[in-house]
Computed example of a mutant assay.
Amino acid sequence: MSQAINDQTSWLRRNRLTVTPLLFLLPAVLFFLVYVIFPIAESFQISFYRWDGLGEPRYIGMANYEELWTDRAFEVSLWNNMKWLALYLLAIPAGLMIALFLNQNVVGIRLYKSLFFFPFVISQVVVGLVFTWFYDPSFGLLNKILTGFGFDAVNVLGDPKLVTYGIIAAGLWPQTAYCMILYLTGLNAVDPEQVEAARLDGAKGPKMLWYVILPQLRPATFIAFVVTIIGALRSFDLISIMTNGGPFGTSRVLSFYMFEKALSEYGFRMGYGAAIAVVLFLIMLCFIAYFLWSMYQDEKGAR
């Protein structure tokens, strides 16, 4: 007995450099498995059933996914998500430009940083309410400006052609602030010796930015891309606050349509909502896998 205990103790001593970090990681891994991996697997399973969330689930195979192909509302939601993806990425170059402007030692720069940082710290609900008032056709600031310059007033949130773009503009406000913070952090880590050497070689302006600054900001750019894409695909709160999917369902995205079908009074179709969630997860997974692979290839090439 004592011999077995001694052998175990000696094994732990020999492998403590491997065992110690694994023990520290174990709680996080368990939480990740319970609260992330298990719900994802459960969503895949539920998507093959017809279930209202209370009664007995009935297995229907791929019927939920087959219905998606003919569901006009799903098509509109998917197309709106593509718009979100394309336009939401504007937050990255906008955040970079603001970060470059704020990365200076001039009078009042702390005040400017606070003003640009402000959208990031306020709730998405507050952002939605502010832009709802901003777009209001009767007293909104947008129409006051348009009519002041002689243009006709527009009802952004009531026009099926404009509503999605109006909500995306609202989402870009805090997202740009977040990307700005990432780039400000990255600019603090830029090697000043490389910048000085590039200046001695005559590099300045766009060349300095493209060949010297941006390569050192690659980690910040990677995080900005991942977070922005995830934010574009899960854009639920702004739509819920500003339009509730209207007018006539034209501002829906996949996350909101999933909620409508699975959890709202209009649906309670848990299986169909899970199928929509699976499609959204697979789209998100493709983008994240691509960026992780690109990052891995860059690190592999740098060795």
Rank of each mutant, 00 (worst) to 15 (best):
P219R: 01
V126K: 04
R234A: 05
T176G: 00
V127D: 02
V156E: 04
Q124L: 13
T132P: 14
C179M: 00
Y165A: 00
S114P: 08
S294C: 06
W293D: 11
P192E: 04
W84L: 14
L214C: 07
P160N: 08
L217P: 02
Q297N: 14
L89W: 00
S47V: 05
Q297K: 14
M82S: 10
L214P: 02
A99F: 02
G128T: 02
F120L: 10
A220I: 00
F38E: 15
V76D: 04
R269S: 10
N81E: 05
E75C: 06
I168R: 05
S251G: 10
L22D: 08
M258L: 15
V227L: 07
W293G: 06
F149W: 13
E299R: 12
L78A: 13
A63S: 10
L89G: 00
L26E: 11
L187V: 02
T70P: 03
V127N: 06
I92N: 00
E75D: 10
V130I: 15
L100A: 05
G166S: 01
F139W: 11
K261E: 14
A189N: 12
W69V: 09
V163G: 01
R234F: 06
L282C: 11
I37F: 12
A153S: 15
F149E: 09
A73D: 11
L182Q: 00
A153I: 13
L89A: 01
R58L: 12
M208Y: 05
G205P: 06
L187A: 03
S114Q: 11
L217K: 01
I239C: 03
W173K: 00
Y65S: 02
F44R: 03
T250D: 07
A4H: 11
M270I: 14
S43Y: 08
K161E: 14
F225P: 00
G128V: 01
L25K: 06
D191H: 05
M242L: 05
Q104Y: 04
A274P: 04
V106T: 07
F38P: 04
G231L: 03
M1L: 14
V126P: 02
G61E: 08
I5Y: 12
L233A: 09
F38Y: 15
I288T: 08
A94W: 03
L238H: 05
G231D: 05
S240Y: 10
D136N: 15
A274N: 08
E260Q: 13
Y178F: 09
L157T: 05
Q175W: 09
N105P: 03
L157H: 09
F32L: 13
V195T: 06
L200W: 15
I46W: 14
I288D: 02
F248R: 12
L68P: 10
L25F: 06
S235I: 07
W69G: 02
L102A: 06
F291K: 01
G166E: 01
T18Y: 14
N64I: 03
F139G: 11
E196M: 03
P160W: 11
G158M: 09
Q216A: 01
D7N: 12
W11S: 10
F256Y: 12
G202V: 06
S123N: 07
L68V: 12
F236Y: 07
I92F: 00
Q104N: 08
R72G: 07
A275F: 13
I98T: 10
S43T: 15
E42N: 15
M258A: 14
Y165L: 02
K300C: 07
L17Q: 14
